[in-house]
Each structure stands twice: as structure tokens, then as C-alpha cells.
């Protein structure tokens, strides 16, 4: 089976540790994952903002990079959703029958990480060890666009040494929403504050999710609120083992200032 990593533009540029974790995890499970260097982005930022013409070359680059692989694995529910649900719309818009055909061949092979592990590899216990207390946020696109269901939780429940706290109102959107976070930043922030508050209520040390863009938003609020809770991608948790605890940067001691940990505290 030829397996490609679609690392996503956000992870490539901002969160390379997530991509490295996927590589480490898959290799541990015996999958020789490849990284096609022609890849860039799924095109979702353009599509979801209304720039379909601008998305055409991006989708073209995507299918070119990932053509010929049996599976394309990505640590992002949102980007997998874009490939599976939006690429055909972009291709139709392009009027390029060749692109439509290429999309029809590539997009069904795109898997979000937990789907690939559970459905393709058939594993739930990936041999991870992570001695921390976490809570899990099911991101909207993984939950409702892809329908990953409880796959991430099935994987997380097998991680040794880890305690999982239930997140209140877990299925409600964190308010990221791509360019929504900029165009409707007040609403986005209001949603993010509620999510951050719920995360705080769990008492977990770490918030885990399958999309770094959502985590960048929630983590950015948790940090601004000096909550002391850090965020981590599902892949990094699953890649952790006794021998190799995650490549975690030394945690800097934050004085948790109660008066500043409420909503809207600024630097």
C-alpha cells in the first residue's frame, strides 16, 4: 500500500511537530509513509471564503501531488473534509474534465488520521503512552462533515498512563471557522471564550483535538487567559511512547493570575 502524508499548509508552516508525529506513529505501525513534496494546501481557505477560481490551481496541485497513492493520510478533519467534499465542486467550476476525473480518483483516498488508523489499519491500540490528564474536543468538520464518530476516542482510550476528562458542550463549535475568525472575530472570540472556559472546567492539563487550526484558536485564547492549559494534536499524543515522550518544549512556569484568567484578559 502506497501511503502519502498530506501534512496541510497550517501544519507545514506552523506545527511541523504534528507532521513529524504522524510519520513516527505510522512508521511504528509499519506504514512506510511518503511525503510528496509537491503538495501545498487543500484549497479550503479559498473555497470557504468564496474564491473558487483561486482554488482551482490549488486543487490541481493537490491531485498532481497525491495521484497514484492508495491512501492519503492527513492530521486534519477539516482538510480531509475539504478534499472529499469540496474538490469536486472546484473541479466542476473549472470546466476542466481532466481535473474532474483526477479529483474523482484522488479524493476518495483521503483519510483523516483517526479514520486511517481505525478503518484502514484496523487498530485502536497504537502502543502509545502519555502520562497526562487530557480533555478532547471533537472538531466540527471531523464530527459532522466526515463523521469520524468515536474513532478518536477509541484511540485515546487505549493510550496508557493517560486520564481523559469529559469536555462540557464538547460538540459545540470553538469558533475558529477559517476566515470566520477574522471576518467575524467578535463572534469567533465569544465562541472561543466559552470553549476555553469549558476546557478550564475539566481541570485537564492538555486539550487534544484532531485539527491544529482549531487548537491554534482555542490555545490562543487559553494562553491569552493565562489558563496554563496547553493544546496538543491527537497525532502527537498517539505518537508518544515510554522511550520517546513527546518532543515537548520545556514548560515555562506561568504565574496563573486568577484575576486575569477570566474572559477577555489581555496581555
Amino acid at each position: 500500500m502506497r501511503v502519502a502524508l498530506m501534512v496541510t499548509c497550517v501544519n507545514d508552516a506552523m506545527f511541523p511537530d504534528t507532521g513529524k508525529a504522524v510519520v513516527r506513529l505510522l512508521r511504528r505501525l509499519g506504514v512506510d509513509v511518503d511525503f510528496p513534496t509537491g503538495q501545498t494546501c487543500c484549497g479550503q481557505p479559498m473555497v470557504n471564503t468564496g474564491y473558487l477560481d483561486e482554488a482551482v490551481p490549488v486543487v490541481r496541485t493537490f491531485v498532481h501531488a497525491f495521484a497514484g497513492y492508495d491512501a492519503v493520510v492527513t492530521p486534519s478533519g477539516s482538510c480531509a473534509g475539504s478534499a472529499r467534499h469540496q474538490h469536486s465542486i472546484v473541479a466542476r467550476r473549472s470546466g476542466d474534465a481532466g481535473l474532474e476525473k483526477a479529483v474523482a480518483e484522488v479524493s476518495p483516498n483521503v483519510y483523516e488520521l483517526s479514520e486511517f488508523l481505525v478503518d484502514v489499519l484496523g487498530v485502536a491500540d497504537v502502543g502509545a503512552y502519555f502520562p497526562h490528564t487530557i480533555t478532547y474536543h471533537p472538531t466540527c468538520h471531523s464530527l459532522r462533515m466526515l463523521g469520524v464518530g468515536d474513532r478518536p476516542m477509541r484511540l485515546l482510550r487505549q493510550v496508557r498512563g493517560m486520564r481523559i476528562k469529559e469536555l462540557p458542550a464538547a460538540e459545540q463549535c470553538c469558533g475558529f471557522g477559517g476566515t470566520f475568525a477574522l471576518k467575524n472575530s467578535d463572534t469567533s472570540v465569544a465562541m472561543g471564550n466559552d470553549k476555553a472556559r469549558h476546557v478550564g472546567e475539566t481541570g485537564a492539563e492538555i486539550l487534544v483535538a484532531g485539527d491544529n487550526s482549531c487548537l491554534m484558536h482555542i490555545g490562543g485564547m487559553l494562553s491569552r487567559q493565562r489558563s496554563g492549559v496547553r493544546v496538543m494534536h491527537l497525532a502527537e499524543v498517539l505518537a508518544s511512547t515510554e522511550d520517546a515522550d513527546p518532543p515537548m518544549h520545556p514548560v515555562e512556569a506561568h504565574p496563573v493570575d486568577a484575576s486575569r484568567s477570566d474572559i477577555g484578559g489581555r496581555v
Binding site: V7, N11, D12, A13, M14, F15, P16, D17, G19, K20, V23, V33, F35, T37, A181, L182, K183, S185, V189, G192, M216, H217, G219, G220, M221, S223, R224, G264, V267
Partner: peptide, 26 residues
């Protein structure tokens, strides 16, 4: 600014995933 007015944002890493892959072959 609509982002950073309410949320912290990490600085980009020293090395992108792409650059790391190129350097180490994964």
C-alpha cells in the same frame, strides 16, 4: 490584528515540516 487582539499566536517554527523532511527524509 483581528486574530491577535484576542488570541495569542505562536511564532512560526525555525524549520517547516517540508524543510525538515528535505533535511532528514522523515
Amino acid at each position: 490584528a483581528a486574530w491577535t487582539d484576542a488570541r495569542d499566536l505562536p511564532t512560526p517554527p525555525a524549520e517547516s515540516f517540508r524543510a525538515w523532511w528535505k533535511r532528514t527524509g522523515g
